[in-house]
Each structure stands twice: as C-alpha cells, then as structure tokens.
Simulated assay, not measured.
Amino acid sequence: MSTPTPQPVALVIGASRGIGRQIAIDLALAGYAVVVAAKSYSSTPDTTIPFPPDPNSPLSTVNTVAREITLSGGTALALPVDTTSQESITRLITSTIAHHSRLDALIYNSGAIWWAPVKATPTKRYQLMQRVNADGLYGAVQAALPHLEASPEGGRIVVVAPPIYSRFFRGKTAYAMGKVAMSVLVVGLGMDLEREGLVGKGKGKGKGKGKGMAVTGVWPAVSIESAATEQFVRRDAGFKKDLRKATVFSDAVLGILRAPAGVVNGKLELDEDFLRREGGVTDFDKYCVVPGSKPRRIMPVELPDLSVKEQDDEGNRFDSSKEREAKL
C-alpha cells in the first residue's frame, strides 16, 4: 500500500460532466486530493479534440476532468466505475485506498433520468434508474463506510438527493422512487451515525477515529446548467435565463463538508437555502448563466418536516444482523 496522502481525499462518483465535474474541480481548489470517477473513462487521451472540452458534452470525461485539475496544480486520479455493478464499485473503493491509503469524503452524483408517467416508463428503464441511483449509492456507501470511519478528518458523505415532498413525484414517479430512496438512506444513515456516537460535536476534524462523521443530501433550488438541462436549452434557448452555474452547487457541497457534523448530519438541504442560512450568501446573481436574469425557483419555499412527536420512542428495536449473529 502507498504512503497515505497528506491532504484529505475526496471521491466524486459521477464526475465526468456538469455538476459532478464542477464539484471535483472545486474540491481540488479547496485542497482535496480528488478521485474523479464515472463510466466515461478513456486510457488513451484524444488529442484531436479541443481542451478543455465543453463541460456538459460527452467529450468531457473523468480523464479530461482529472487533467484540468492537475494542470491547475491540483491532485487528481481518474478511475472508471459502473454504478450498476457492485464489483465495479468495490474495485473503485479498493483502488482509491490503494492509491491514497485514506478516504475522507464521498460525493455521490451519479444518476439516471427518465421523466415520464408510470404507463410511459418501461420496466427496464425503471430498473436501470434504481440500479444507478438507489442501488449504486447503497453499494458505494457500504464499500466506503469502513474507510470513512477511519478518517482523521471525520468522514463525510454528500448525496445529490432531494427533500421528500409530494409534488416531486408528479409526472416522474419511477425516477422519484429511486431518488427518494436515496434521501431515505441519508436520513436513516444519519440516525445510525448518531446512535453509534460517530457524529460528535466537531467541525469535521475530530480528535478521535471517525469523530465528526456526517451524511447529507443536497438538491438544487434552481435549475443548474448541466448535461441534464442541455436538452431543455436545445428545445428552447430562452430556458438559459432560468439556469444557474454549477458553481452554486459545488459551493454548497464545500459548505456542507466544512460545516459542523451536527449541523448537516441526516439533513436534506437545498443549495441556495443552505448557502443563505449557513454560508451567509446573499448575492446569487453571480451564479446566473444569463447575467441580470432572475432564474425561476423550482423547489418549494417551505418543505414538510418528516419527524413525528414520537421521534425518540423506538420501542423494542429489532436488529436482523444481531439475530443472525446469535444463530451462527
């Protein structure tokens, strides 16, 4: 195994284009050694295309993103991953640890999209979304948790997942099922970390093993310029006035990673609202793709509280893993 990397290490899954690329680049600027992972990996650079390529086009790959980072003086490693394959995810985590001997932050941005009513969503399309979105996230978290718990920085997980509210399901139920499953993982894993005493009261740099751990979901309050929104711009060039730059999202991710664990653990945040509340940001005009525009907010101003009055009453909690251990 190599000598541990002295700087904190962040693994960004789904980092080849758009939001994921911006997160990777800004993490490197913030001092992280970044592992840039996605399916779009090429071992041989294509010298015939302009560099850097359009960040929202298929020409942008984990290799070009890693090259952008290293040419700017940062530390980056490009690795392939197929998030529909647990074997591929495990290999990604193993390769990250083999190279850096540590993992301090996992950002899961990988996602498959199909927005249509149930009757217009084929079962195969639904299954693909679950494998990339919910299943891929779960597999990455399972493989990364032991290493994040050992992080001297206080291991952090940031997931691109939405708040849970009814309007989100309309017209895209199959997609919403997977994304909400990701949100449930954020909330539930946050409870696990609290129960195990891993959240602590530090600012992500706890004194003991695994102190200051947190898992957080974050979602855009306003549509963001990305590979996903390119289709809307192609149909209507005027849609650009409703877009923000991906830097608003990466700024929120960095803010979450820097925040005290107790403030962000198990939370489902919106980028703008988090930056206003915790980062003191008041000027969002700098994030507009079209200068002087007033992008339309796509998220509700108020979201439902998922907690109940009996939140702390667990009753007789059953743990299947303990039951299985007792039988062995």
Rank of each mutant, 00 (worst) to 15 (best):
Y138R: 11
T75Q: 09
S72Y: 01
P122D: 12
G18R: 00
N109V: 03
P52G: 08
I49V: 14
E87T: 15
H99M: 09
V81F: 01
A33D: 10
K119G: 01
Q142A: 14
S110Q: 07
N109A: 12
L103K: 01
F51A: 10
I113D: 02
I49H: 10
R131W: 01
A78T: 05
S40L: 03
D82H: 08
S40C: 05
T83S: 07
N63D: 12
L71Q: 15
W114G: 04
D82A: 09
A76D: 04
N109W: 00
G14S: 08
D82K: 09
K119P: 12
G111V: 04
N56S: 08
D104R: 02
L71A: 11
L77Q: 06
L106K: 13
L59G: 02
K124E: 15
S43D: 15
E68A: 05
P58S: 11
E68D: 13
T121M: 09
S57T: 09
A33H: 05
T96W: 01
N56P: 03
E68F: 05
Q127P: 00
I69F: 02
I89R: 11
S85F: 04
I69Y: 02
A76R: 03
L59A: 12
T75R: 11
A116I: 05
A120F: 11
P55M: 03
G136T: 04
A140M: 11
N63G: 13
L92K: 06
N63S: 14
L27S: 07
K119V: 12
L79N: 10
A105G: 05
V65W: 01
A112M: 03
E68I: 08
A66N: 01
G111F: 00
T121R: 11
A98G: 13
S101H: 12
I93S: 06
M129K: 02
G14A: 05
H100W: 06
T44L: 07
L77C: 07
V132F: 05
Q142F: 08
T64D: 08
I113M: 11
D46G: 13
I49L: 15
Y32P: 02
A112F: 06
P55V: 00
P58D: 12
W115F: 14
A120L: 10
M129H: 03
V141H: 04
I19F: 10
P52W: 13
D135A: 03
R91N: 13
Q22L: 07
T96D: 01
T123I: 14
L29N: 13
S101Q: 15
Y41K: 02
G31N: 07
V118W: 09
T44K: 14
T47P: 01
L29C: 08
Q127S: 12
R67E: 13
S88P: 04
T61H: 00
V62R: 00
T90E: 14
R21M: 10
R131I: 00
I69C: 01
A24D: 09
P80E: 12
P117H: 10
L27G: 03
T47R: 09
I25C: 08
P50Y: 03
D135Q: 07
S88E: 08
A15I: 07
I23P: 07
Q142T: 14
A37V: 06
A98Q: 14
Y32F: 15
A120S: 13
A112V: 04
V65C: 08
E68R: 04
P117N: 13
S16L: 00
T90R: 12
D82R: 10
V118Y: 08
Q127C: 06
T48V: 04
L103E: 05
L27N: 03
L128M: 13
I19H: 03
G136L: 02
K124A: 15
R131G: 02
A112S: 15
